[in-house]
Nucleic acid binder design. Sequence first.
DNA 1: TTGTTATGTTAGTGAGTACTAACCATCCCT
DNA 2: AGGGATGGTTAGTACTCACTAACATAACAA
Lengths: 214, 214
Amino acid sequence: MDIAASPAEKKSRHPASRKATRLRIIEAALRLFSQKGYLGATTREIAREAAVSEMTLFRHFPSKEALFEAVLSTHTFLPALKSILPAIQNVAIEEALAAIARKYLETLDTRRDFIKIMLSECSYFPEKVHAIYHSFLAEIFSTLAAYFKDMQKKGVMRPFDPILGARAFLAMFFTYFLTTDIVMFPSRDKTSVNAVVREYVSFFLYGTEQKAEA
Amino acid sequence: MDIAASPAEKKSRHPASRKATRLRIIEAALRLFSQKGYLGATTREIAREAAVSEMTLFRHFPSKEALFEAVLSTHTFLPALKSILPAIQNVAIEEALAAIARKYLETLDTRRDFIKIMLSECSYFPEKVHAIYHSFLAEIFSTLAAYFKDMQKKGVMRPFDPILGARAFLAMFFTYFLTTDIVMFPSRDKTSVNAVVREYVSFFLYGTEQKAEA
DNA sequence: TTGTTATGTTAGTGAGTACTAACCATCCCT
DNA sequence: AGGGATGGTTAGTACTCACTAACATAACAA
């Protein structure tokens, strides 16, 4: 036992390869869990997909459940919404909302497998999945709500509950993502994503009522 | 073999009890599938929950997968949205939309277990689940879109793509249902469902922009 | 070389699964 | 009373799963 081992240094001989193997297993698990569910994906299959032996898988993760947790914690995704907020401070509100929506959809798209797992296993691993959902949702809701509050202060938006507004706005796009990418419900023929974003933004911003003509 | 058996008559002695047993099994399967997923729920468990022996389960359904299909086909839910459309033809548009939203949320709520299954197993049984989703979504979208089209003709709503409008409107409430009932994300303290409905309806109808004061 | 680390290979264990066979109990209808 | 349909019980099969033990190999660092 090398008790005096410096904690700052891992001191392993082939750290790069070990880390890479671990990552390959996690990526393979992500793919297979999202395709077949936690119970449907076998450790043998995951190992084969990662091009390692099953023994190696269990040397890296003491159990299948531990691997599942590693998948979750590795891929916990920060909204990445904050990053574009500065860039849209001085553009028209329609453009700003459209940019937010596109960024959100883009984030959902790159994390599609992860979201599929979260939806599938939220019954089987309620606590694990809920914890991630809550931290994710709480952050993205409050981030967008803060932006709305700012717009209200500037007189660009009317007064309304900013949290509810954030939830409603994101909800439209989340369900759009869900129905097209997860449920595979075919979108209208040529309706491009941009057209949907524009239309949804105009719903949220201007509503659907027929304004009385003066 | 009673080849001459009349096809119009089932000719079973205890049809009521047989039907009831079958239903009990399906209900138990619905509960357990929604709690633990298709693979996580065992036939033994389902039988026990239904208070029948495992043999009886397999006498009614040749396989676990057949039972799953029976659960799906038994609980396929018609939107029940059409039923309230006549009653809201002559009320203010805000009230009409709120009534639609409440009816929709109510439908989602009573079919919570079913929806959980659909979300969980859409990776494991893509075709089965997608088929149901598609028929459900196509009907509810077109029903609501027809209503919107009518409102546009009457000059109550401005021109917009009615299908996209229907999708956006229902999307807000579906995700609200998802986050509160499935993901169990706590809603704001005292925010009642009715308050959320009212706020979401006003987003959809009037938008969030600050109107210039004349 | 020598020792250490990461991985592979083979063979296997015990548990749990969907599903079956065979026999028995009970009920309703005639 | 008797016959046929329904359901219970017991025991079991064949299979797959997560997970393990023991040993071999290859790369790298001293």
